[in-house]
């Protein structure tokens, strides 16, 4: 059976379609090709979204292992449920919605069990090497500290504030897209983001 090779030790980005094609297809075109049976289009979508989703989910659940599991589940769902996508919304809206739902489910599950495990510790509490973590210098140590404070402050936000502020201020999505992802009116999204920022500002003032 022919298997799709997602991982090549030579590079982290797998050339799937032509190198020239890689940048010319929109997400919507890629998912349409995947729905028609082109599995290389799926590989391209994985390459485009795995780190973006990882950032979003990690900032949401604050657990690196769980975040990676959730992103795996999201991309598996993309694979098995490709035909559920309809071109009435952006592909990014769809995939972020799936990831967000998985993340919320995980947080609810965690709340019920209230288990603390090693993977909930931050970057510097355990030896967990992430390719994105730079070696710490004086400047970056300070920036890292600030990042940790912000991450802690984000965790203090209620879920409905946390989702929107991460999507807006970290993922840099538009208000309209966020409104579709979380399925609330635009005005409500703007209000929640505003409230979230004010709460973060207050929390970070206390951390100083």
């Amino acid at each position: 059976m022919k298997t799709m090779n997602l991982y090549s030790p030579a590079s982290s980005s797998i050339p799937s379609l032509n190198m020239a094609d890689e940048f010319s297809y929109t997400d919507e075109e890629l998912i349409a090709r995947f729905q028609d049976g082109d599995e290389q289009a799926y590989v391209e979508l994985v390459n485009r979204y795995r780190n973006r989703l990882m950032t979003f989910v990690y900032r949401f659940v604050n657990d690196i292992e769980k975040a990676e599991d959730i992103v795996q589940d999201t991309l598996m769902k993309l694979y098995t449920h490709r035909h559920y996508y309809r071109n009435i919304a952006k592909f990014s809206t769809w995939i972020y919605t799936i990831a967000g739902n998985f993340a919320k489910t995980e947080l609810r599950r965690k709340k019920r069990h209230k288990v603390t495990n090693l993977s909930q510790m931050g970057f510097d509490d355990r030896e967990y090497q992430l390719p994105s973590v730079e070696p710490e210098t004086g400047e970056t140590a300070q920036g890292h500290f600030a990042e940790k404070k912000i991450q802690m402050a984000i965790q203090e936000l209620p879920l409905h504030f946390r989702t929107v502020v991460i999507l807006r201020d970290i993922q840099e999505l538009s208000y309209e897209e966020i409104s579709k992802i979380v399925d609330v009116p635009l005005g409500t999204v703007k209000s929640r983001i505003n409230r979230a920022r004010l709460q973060l500002q207050q929390s970070l003032k206390e951390f100083r």
């Binding site: 990882m54 795996q72 994105s132 973590v133 920036g143």
Partner: peptide, 17 residues
């Protein structure tokens, strides 16, 4: 928040997927 570093998946991610 805008300047917070992005998070990448681990080296095992693609193999697992």
């Amino acid at each position: 928040m805008k300047s917070m570093p992005g998070i990448s998946t681990s080296a095992e991610f693609m193999n697992n997927l």
